[in-house]
Amino acid sequence: MKLRHTALALVGWYLMVPPGRLATAFYTPLSQWKVTGIFDSEVACKKTQAAHQGFLYERPPIPSTCIASDDLRLKGK
């Protein structure tokens, strides 16, 4: 039981953006996206994500997402 709680405590959150051109952003595997921030909670990640979108009002917003550090999509398979 203690091991399970320890594993949950090690999960962090990544704020990620796709590499390269926006036109292909959502076709790029998540394992190839770039980490732009690391957070202790999903709430902190989403607050930063929202703040970054607010600064980009002069151009199209950059797609970004908050992903748990243990998400299997980050493995690239």
Rank of each mutant, 00 (worst) to 15 (best):
M1L: 10
M1D: 12
M1I: 07
K2H: 07
K2G: 06
L3P: 11
R4G: 10
R4P: 06
T6S: 13
T6W: 14
T6H: 15
A7Q: 15
A7L: 15
L8G: 13
L8S: 14
L8C: 13
L10Y: 13
V11Q: 03
V11T: 05
G12E: 04
Y14V: 00
Y14C: 02
L15M: 04
L15A: 00
L15W: 00
M16Q: 06
M16C: 02
V17E: 03
V17I: 12
V17Q: 07
P18S: 10
P18Q: 07
P18I: 03
P18C: 13
P19Y: 04
P19A: 05
P19T: 04
G20E: 06
G20Y: 04
R21C: 13
R21S: 14
L22Y: 15
L22E: 12
A23V: 03
A23D: 09
A23C: 07
A23Q: 11
T24Q: 11
A25K: 01
F26I: 14
F26Q: 13
F26G: 09
F26M: 11
F26D: 10
Y27F: 13
T28E: 14
T28M: 08
P29I: 02
P29G: 01
P29A: 00
L30V: 13
L30M: 09
L30R: 09
L30W: 05
S31E: 04
S31C: 05
Q32I: 07
Q32H: 05
W33S: 03
W33Y: 06
W33D: 02
K34A: 09
K34R: 06
T36Y: 09
T36A: 06
G37C: 04
I38T: 09
F39Y: 11
F39A: 08
D40E: 07
D40H: 04
D40N: 07
D40Q: 08
S41W: 03
S41V: 03
S41L: 02
S41R: 03
E42V: 13
A44M: 12
A44Y: 05
A44E: 11
A44P: 07
C45W: 01
C45P: 00
C45Y: 00
C45N: 00
K46A: 09
K47N: 15
K47I: 15
K47T: 15
K47R: 14
K47E: 08
K47P: 06
T48G: 12
T48H: 08
T48V: 15
Q49A: 12
Q49H: 15
A50M: 10
A51Y: 08
H52M: 12
H52T: 14
Q53M: 11
Q53F: 12
Q53C: 11
Q53P: 02
G54E: 08
F55K: 10
F55M: 15
L56K: 13
Y57G: 09
E58R: 14
E58Q: 08
R59I: 13
P60S: 03
P61W: 06
P63T: 01
P63Q: 04
S64P: 02
S64E: 03
T65S: 11
C66I: 01
C66S: 01
C66M: 05
I67P: 00
I67D: 04
I67S: 01
I67V: 08
I67L: 07
A68Q: 02
S69C: 02
D70W: 05
R73T: 08
R73E: 12
L74W: 03
L74D: 01
L74N: 01
L74G: 00
L74Q: 00
G76S: 04
G76C: 02
K77S: 15
K77Y: 09
K77I: 05
K77G: 09
